[in-house]
Design a protein around this nucleic acid. Structure first.
Length: 700
DNA sequence: CTAGGGTTAG
């Protein structure tokens, strides 16, 4: 048994009771130092000596031996070491639990995030004691309600607080937050308006409520009202203002807030730095984001330790098209102390997918497993990464070994197959998905439709259209409409494509491109041009895909003049830099129409080195017009540029095959074998021309 | 009592 001397007893009692109190209330509730101690149960003194979990049990044992019943302090002690179940059992044995003991047991459960017991002890206290009005407990319960997004509990607490007549601005501010987290903006505002002495925290809580409930603009306006009362925001306030600007895409206002932070000397912590960084990523320049990143990681010694901050920069690079920079930041030695979490890894996997960097991708896979972050959503990212890197078997393996597949799992693997040219496997997976009773969503429909479009699976596409209509996916997503339209166009059903197009409420450049391409495929170049004019009338900015399909449409309809005009318009009026595809389309346009010399001149004038597609188009034209002199010129120049690319030989072979010179085709094939080139395409493609002549591109 | 980062699609 431990011996307690009077000296120890006095010293113990003079200490503040901060151990049992809660935040700002602690100052009002502790026992004043100059009071003589009332006789206290032995556990209060002994509890000070308990520094280790096992000593609690020793204490408990000695209490039993000395005949003392377990009391609140012992229970508290058990709870403080995390033995909550034990604490609960003893609590329920208390002959008459007091207000104070309820308060303690609630607090310990709250600190250990055991929400259900926080609520049940509160209810028990109210039935046992009749009423239970305590500002500390109200704060704890409101925080619990806020975390659980429990509107029933929030409303009940609101009633009890009003009934208790003891509400102060702290509790009301918590109530604003609880209503806000439950998505009840109006109720939050009502409570806010009732707070008599609003602090910066009250204002901030209300601003946060607006920003988090998709009313960012109101949040900014409330900040203006706050400043009318000559109240300045703190680091929390400006943080939510920056988030508001991010959500609204307001770079200008965001910069103003950044200036306000500097002007008011608000110290930037990692939360605010992350918000600012993210604001620049989403509405501004990646360079500005990097400035914030550098400034904060230099100015604060410990600032470089923040995982979320570091991740935000990685995400920024990944989202804004700098995947290489994201990987470099990840491998930067300066940040080696920080371990990535699932958010970091998800973003990095996306960066690898963009770069098709399979080495880093596999390394990240190892990290996912090593850190035990192997959840469904990360597995989905892995599936996507493997698929985009062309490792379909690996993608399928990760998918197949995922225990809790969700819709995204199926979508990722289906889209992966569809985009890597394995349309039939994609369709097969879609069947399996339905057999396993998964409900497809808009993304599924888009993926499967693109598979259908590429192999002309008309029936399946039709049933998907029905499905999409039934579940209202066509009107809900512009992607679904575009995919449907693209599907009908690729299957040669221009009427249905047009019907889908006309029925779509909202259209973007991709939608228009699909429709322009649909007309072009039917040989209706005039229709394509008319659509393009309509598109400009609706003040939509065409993208490079629109011009690619438009030029292809002109080419297929023999509209050389129009094609040249459009190319000019694209380069000179809109300042587009033509891509290799655009050049190929132009050469195709000229060569197909028989203007071979002009096409060759065009190639000579190109500011970049012509690629495969450009020569392919030219050779195709040579074949169409049986002009082998020009064809051989092109062949020689191709061989000079890239003597060891198998695809060129395929083009040459196609040229001879188009004229039925099978002997030459055989010779070229021999040449490929001799040079040890083995990249042989495995499909043959049948294409109908406008002149109704059939060209067969023979696989070599 | 108030605050930060993501992955699937045309």
């Amino acid at each position: 048994m431990l011996m307690i001397t009077p000296r120890i007893l006095h010293r113990l009692h003079c200490k503040k009771w901060s151990f049992f109190t809660y935040h700002h209330y602690s100052y009002h509730h502790h026992t004043p130092n100059n009071h003589l101690p009332v006789p206290l149960p032995p556990t209060i003194h002994l509890s000070r000596i308990c520094k280790h979990p096992t000593t609690v049990k020793t204490l408990h044992a000695s209490l039993i031996i000395s005949g003392h019943p377990p009391d609140t302090t012992l229970i508290s002690l058990y709870a403080s070491f995390g033995f909550l179940r034990h604490a609960r059992t003893l609590f329920h044995r208390l002959p008459s639990p007091t207000h104070h003991s309820f308060k303690l047991i609630i607090r310990w459960h709250f600190l250990n995030d055991v929400h259900s017991h926080v609520v049940s002890f509160y209810n028990l206290a109210r039935t046992t004691l009749g009423s239970f009005n305590d500002l500390v407990v109200f704060s704890i319960l409101l925080k619990t309600a806020s975390q659980l997004r429990d509107i029933v509990l929030t409303t009940k607490l609101h009633c009890n607080i009003l009934k208790s007549n003891a509400a102060d601005s702290f509790v009301l501010t918590s109530l604003v937050d609880a209503y806000s987290k439950c998505g009840k903006l109006r109720d939050a505002r009502k409570v806010f308006d009732e707070i008599p002495d609003r602090s910066v925290v009250s204002w901030t809580s209300m601003i946060v409520a607006y920003v988090q409930n998709e009313c960012a603009e109101e949040g900014l306006m409330l900040f203006n009202r706050m400043r009318e009362g000559f109240l300045d925001g703190n680091v929390f306030t400006v943080g939510s203002l920056v988030t508001a600007c991010t959500k609204l895409g307001c770079l200008h206002q965001g910069k103003w807030v950044h200036g306000y932070v500097i002007k008011n000397g608000i110290e930037i912590n990692s939360y605010l730095a992350t918000s600012l960084l993210n604001m620049y990523v989403k509405c501004g320049d990646i360079g500005d984001a990097r400035s914030v990143f550098d400034e904060f990681s230099v100015s604060t010694c410990g600032g470089g330790d923040d995982l979320v901050f570091w991740t935000a920069m990685i995400v920024g690079y990944t989202q804004r098209g700098y995947p290489q920079a994201a990987l470099e930041l990840f491998t930067d030695k300066k940040w080696y102390r920080i371990l990535p979490n699932s958010v970091t890894l998800a973003s990095l996997l996306s960066a690898c997918a963009q770069l098709e960097n399979i080495v880093m991708g596999k390394l990240l896979h190892v990290l996912v497993v090593k850190y035990g972050l192997d959840d469904t959503s990360l597995r989905n990212s892995l599936v996507d990464m493997y698929a985009k890197c062309g490792l379909i078997p690996d993608a399928h393996y990760v998918f197949a070994t995922t225990v809790d597949k969700d819709v995204v799992s199926w979508n990722s693997v289906i889209s992966g197959y569809a985009q890597s040219g394995s349309a039939y496997e994609a369709l097969d997976l879609f069947n399996r998905m339905r057999m396993e009773s998964f409900l497809p969503d808009a993304v599924t429909v888009v993926g499967v439709l693109s598979a259908c479009a590429s192999v002309g699976a008309h029936q399946i596409g039709l049933s998907l259209h029905g499905f999409a209509l039934k579940y209202g996916l066509v009107s809900s997503s512009i992607y679904v409409g575009t995919a449907l339209l693209n599907f009908y166009a690729k299957c040669g059903d221009a009427t249905s494509a047009r019907m889908v197009f006309d029925g779509m409420g909202e259209k973007n450049a991709v939608t228009w491109a699909a429709m322009i391409g649909g007309c072009g495929m039917q040989g209706d170049g005039v229709g394509s041009l008319a659509l393009f004019r309509d598109m400009l009338k609706e003040e939509l900015v065409p993208n490079e895909v629109v011009f690619t399909t438009l030029l292809a449409a002109c080419s297929h309809s023999g509209m050389v003049e129009e094609g040249l005009m459009i190319f000019d318009f694209m380069c000179k009026e809109l300042n587009f830099v033509p891509s290799m595809k655009h050049y190929a389309c132009m050469v195709d346009l000229l060569a197909r129409a028989g203007n071979l010399q002009e096409a060759l001149d065009f190639i000579d004038k190109m500011p970049v080195q012509p690629g495969v597609g450009v020569f392919g188009a030219f050779l195709h034209g040579c074949g169409l017009h049986s002009n082998f002199d020009f064809g051989e010129v092109a062949i020689r120049r191709m061989l000079e540029l890239h003597p060891d690319q198998a695809c060129y030989y395929v083009l040459i072979s196609n040229l001879y095959a188009s004229d039925g010179r099978w002997g030459m085709v055989k010779e070229v094939r021999e040449m490929i074998k001799q040079r040890g080139l083995n990249k042989v395409p495995g499909v043959s493609l049948v294409e109908m021309d406008v002149n109704n002549t059939t060209h067969v591109n023979v696989a070599v």
